[in-house]
């Protein structure tokens, strides 16, 4: 474990908690893409199946359980409890255009052709594009609540910190995982446009509205 991966995990945890609290406290999921949240729940489910097969550390297990729990709770709030506040008309990204190619790629490019490894690879590829429905929805509504932008900032920051973690591990441990690194670079690049708006607008106290 290194400081970059730890702060990355905490940033990821912060994002997940911020979103869950925002929806729970405001009793509304307006502006939130339910599709992205379903994709994240799928990412955690397919990546953390090893909860059932191996124990790595208390930290590892605890974080995985929290991630899965919070992501399913968020999906539950959006599609069941607070369904009336779900803005389905703007959450129209065709997720099948993500899942099918990602699923195919996981079969073609992976470290080991075993079920757990294919599912892990699927989750890595899927996570890199899972935010697209949310970014697409913001471009359609033309704006985002400030709390939602903080959620997106920490979510984007977490994988950027993981990129530094992989540089660190390559240099000090001779470790590198091309699949995770390439997917992580793609994932972080998708946030660049948002990061620019976040820094130039939200951090100056303005509302995030598009076109910029």
């Amino acid at each position: 474990m290194n400081i970059f991966r730890l702060t990355g995990d905490l940033s990821h945890l912060a994002a997940i908690i911020i979103l869950l609290l925002k929806i729970w406290k405001s009793r509304s999921c307006a502006g939130i893409s339910g599709k992205s949240q379903v994709l994240f729940a799928l990412v955690f489910t397919t990546r953390y199946l090893d909860l059932l097969t191996s124990f790595i550390s208390l930290y590892n297990t605890t974080m995985k359980v929290i991630y899965i729990g919070c992501s399913y709770a968020t999906v539950y709030l959006i599609y069941m409890k607070l369904k009336a506040t779900y803005d389905g008309n703007h959450d129209t990204f065709r997720v099948e255009f993500l899942i099918v190619p990602v699923g195919g790629l996981a079969f073609l490019v992976n470290h080991d052709f075993s079920p757990l490894e294919i599912l892990w690879t699927f989750s890595i590829y899927l996570e890199s594009v899972a935010i697209l429905p949310q970014l697409f929805m913001i471009s359609k509504t033309g704006e985002a609540e400030t709390i939602t932008t903080h959620y997106l900032f920490f979510l984007g920051l977490y994988r950027a910190l993981y990129l530094i973690n992989w540089i660190w591990r390559f240099y000090f441990e001779g470790f590198f995982d091309m699949i995770a690194i390439v997917a992580g670079v793609v994932q972080t690049i998708l946030y660049c446009d948002f990061f620019y708006l976040y820094v130039t607008k939200v951090l100056k106290g303005k509302k995030l509205s598009l076109p910029a």
């Binding site: 590892n60 974080m63 991630y67 470790f175 995982d177």
Partner: peptide
Amino acid sequence: RTPVRAKDEL
């Protein structure tokens, strides 16, 4: 350096 899947990463 051989690529290896990170088992310890979230």
